[in-house]
Nucleic acid binder design. Structure first.
Lengths: 112, 112
DNA sequence: TCGTTTCATCGTCTTTTTACGATAAAGGAT
DNA sequence: ATCCTTTATCGTAAAAAGACGATGAAACGA
């Protein structure tokens, strides 16, 4: 028998439910965090917050990345719901998704 | 010459500074987001917020991951500054880093 | 001292992400 | 109709992340 002298108090005693699943909201939150967890995408996000309406090309000009790469990052941000793009002639006009960004902030404030 | 009829207004005109670097804070913020951008780490984070003092083994019990993997995730959270661990006998006691978590929330509220 | 427990780290394999050139679709100009 | 611009997507190569077994260090009990 080996029992080491733990100085800490255990608060969760019922380990009947082994797995500690995330809620749908937490999952979504994590997904958004992942999207912003890349410097380039954080840059894009900030750029969009300062330049509410701009097209892909504007962002490409400002980042040291190829157009294809920027487009890919924009897709990640879109899939996370942080950004939405509307086709504007031959271009695509991007802007932050206000509702989802607000939700994100709220979640960070409350859930975490 | 080709000029397509853009319906949107351009707000940033001075493209003298081509690169749009992140500030130190934004970089740090992105780093923290990346850490929480993985479901397992989000789970650990929430677990720690509900069980303020617990050792690695407690977390391993609760996640469907090997001990080595959990330890690796804890390192990521530590490196991001979200969590700190203190050696407690043969074990390591983990808890959230209150100051940094508070900073994180503040940043999300203001910067984004 | 010797066995036991806890945990971080190492080595390795697999999967995912990132980045880019090339290409094609879509829209506007001429 | 033809050319030009914009951008998403494809294919691919390189880099990073994720997962796990094995190992070793640290701490305690017997």
């Amino acid at each position: 028998m080996y029992t080491f002298n733990r100085k800490i108090t255990i608060m969760n005693t019922n380990h009947t439910t082994k797995v500690y699943d995330l809620t749908v909201d937490e999952e979504r939150l994590s997904h958004m965090m992942k999207a912003l967890g890349h410097p380039a995408r954080m840059q894009i996000f900030r750029y969009l917050s300062e330049n509410p309406q701009c097209i892909t090309g504007d962002i490409v000009e400002v980042l040291p990345l190829a157009q294809a790469t920027v487009s890919q990052h924009l897709k990640v941000l879109r899939d996370a719901g942080l950004v939405c793009g509307t086709i504007e002639g031959p271009a695509t006009c991007y802007c932050l998704d206000g509702d989802n960004v607000a939700w994100f902030k709220r979640q960070v404030g409350s859930v975490l």
